[in-house]
């Protein structure tokens, strides 16, 4: 629980909805949709190991070199919480974490919401699959992470070092929502953008909602359509949102899509 900085909120007797953030930030990503979801649902938030307020000491390059490590964490978390079967909402790369977890232990899930999912970001010439990126593009992203490292480390130092006599540093620090150890961010980027979970989609046996954005540079509509086509019986909705984070750019529509899906399951 501590490892993943688990936060439980909302209606105690409602259906359980687990919100998993993607690559980049932490559970704060959900803050604009949590109020709407919390009215009827028990909402479980957590940070992936290496992100936000998770236990950085629990991070290891080996364990988190594949999405299976993250899926392991989700299953462990669900077993520890034991809330009964849940609806798992995974954003971005966490949508594939949800797919892996639900394939391994379908009984723990009543449904999956895949928010802006992509089973593979890099194009695959062999099969004609278009993920939207080349291997060089991913290298450029890693470069961007590296070049922003210097800026971060300066800003992050007080947080990392701990500074009890100046608590305001911890509260008001710029970028505090996305504080990440640069080495961990780099490894997570590798894991995320080099993953290929296309073959896992067909194994999903729980009701699934694919929610994509109308205009998303990271997970373009044809990728959403691919995911929808591969997961048997899945539903596809396109949110009127720009960018890769509809829970921020179109929180109402995002919350509504999740609420509709969960209600229809009952």
């Amino acid at each position: 629980m501590k490892r993943n900085h688990v936060v439980v909120t909302g209606r105690g007797d409602g259906p359980v909805v687990v919100l998993a953030h993607g690559f980049g930030c932490d559970q704060n990503m959900w803050r604009l949709v949590v109020p709407a979801l919390a009215e009827d649902f028990k909402v479980v938030l957590f940070d992936h190991v290496g992100a936000g307020r998770s236990d950085l000491g629990a991070w290891s390059e080996e364990r988190y070199a594949s999405l299976d490590g993250y899926a392991d964490d989700v299953l462990q978390l669900l077993r520890a919480l034991d809330p009964g079967p849940v609806v798992f909402v995974g954003h971005s790369v966490s949508s594939m974490v949800g797919v892996l977890a639900a394939v391994r232990e379908p009984d723990l899930f009543t449904g999956l919401v895949l928010l802006t999912p992509s089973p593979r970001y890099v194009d695959d010439e062999a099969t004609g699959y278009r993920g939207g990126f080349s291997a060089e593009d991913i290298d450029e992203l890693l470069e961007s992470l590296d070049s922003n490292y210097l800026g971060w480390s300066g800003a992050m130092a007080p947080v990392i070092m701990g500074n009890p006599e100046r608590p305001e540093l911890g509260e008001e620090l710029t970028n505090s929502f996305c504080r990440t150890d640069p080495a961990i961010a780099r490894a997570f980027a590798h894991t995320t953008f080099r993953s290929d979970n296309r073959a896992d989609l067909a194994k999903v046996g729980v009701p699934t909602l694919v929610a994509q954005c109308s205009d998303d540079a990271i997970a373009p509509p044809e990728v959403g359509a691919f995911v929808h086509a591969r997961i048997p019986g899945s539903k596809l909705v396109t949110l009127p949102a720009t960018g890769h984070c509809p829970q921020l750019s179109a929180p109402d529509a995002t919350a509504e899509a999740i609420i509709d899906f969960v209600r229809a399951l009952r």
Partner: peptide, 12 residues
Amino acid sequence: GGRLYHETHFAP
């Protein structure tokens, strides 16, 4: 690469 960084860090 900058666009990916923008989408995953900057914009949020």
